[in-house]
Write a protein that binds this DNA or RNA. Structure first.
Length: 191
DNA sequence: TGCCCGATTAACT
DNA sequence: GTTAATCGGGCAA
């Protein structure tokens, strides 16, 4: 049985937590799968929501680690983040893609597609498939409806520039499971 | 108060 | 490749 991850797992810098989460299994209400792609954000990072200081929207990012930060993206989609340490650094990881393994019929219905590669391959898609909304903002990751399990096998993690941002585009803070077919976009192979 | 833009996606041409 | 959908934050006026 895989090891359950509690909020202590997030009591490390975001750049340490991020690669360790690749391959972890996230379930929300029993629905979800294996995390295959995510990105790190930090308060000193011009691309982060927390860069300009606390607001009502990003308040959770400034709180303790191991909690969920959900925000509305482009006025349309929800995006799911996990808050990391150090506390006060307002750092978090954005869950960008999941390999669906549990509750596929539910996810297909929510997403309106039978193509499993389109269920959770993108931050907005992850939230739609897992039923994440603003109602989940501020909830603890180690309490219902969330379940998070450590990866049970060795994985190869690849990194690259983050997607969809215009500031700090050079920071290689996007992490992915090498070779996964559920990534939102492929990683550029090493030169 | 108003205006611009964004950690996106799907449906176009 | 391009564009609409749609809302909240930051910043100028």
């Amino acid at each position: 049985m895989p090891k359950r991850l509690n909020r202590a797992f997030f009591k490390r810098g975001v750049l340490e937590v991020a690669p360790d989460l690749i391959g972890a299994v996230l379930l929300v209400g029993g629905v979800g799968g294996r995390i295959v792609e995510l990105e790190a954000y930090h308060q000193t990072d011009p691309a982060a929501h927390s860069y300009h200081g606390p607001t009502a929207r990003n308040a959770v990012m400034f709180g303790p680690p191991g909690y969920v930060y959900v925000y509305r993206s482009y006025g349309i989609h929800w995006c799911l983040n996990f808050v990391c340490e150090p506390k006060g650094s307002a750092s978090a990881v954005l869950i960008r893609a999941i390999e669906p393994t549990a509750g596929l019929p539910v996810m297909r219905r929510r997403r309106g597609t039978a193509d499993d590669r389109l269920l959770c391959s993108g931050p907005g898609r992850v939230c739609e498939a897992l039923g994440i909304t603003r109602a989940h903002n501020g909830l603890a990751l180690d309490a219902p409806p969330f379940e998070l399990f450590a990866r049970s096998d060795e994985v190869e993690v690849v990194t690259g520039p983050r997607i969809g941002i215009t500031k700090a585009v050079d920071r290689p803070w996007r992490y992915g499971l090498k070779g996964s077919r559920y990534l939102s976009k492929p990683f550029k192979p090493p030169a």
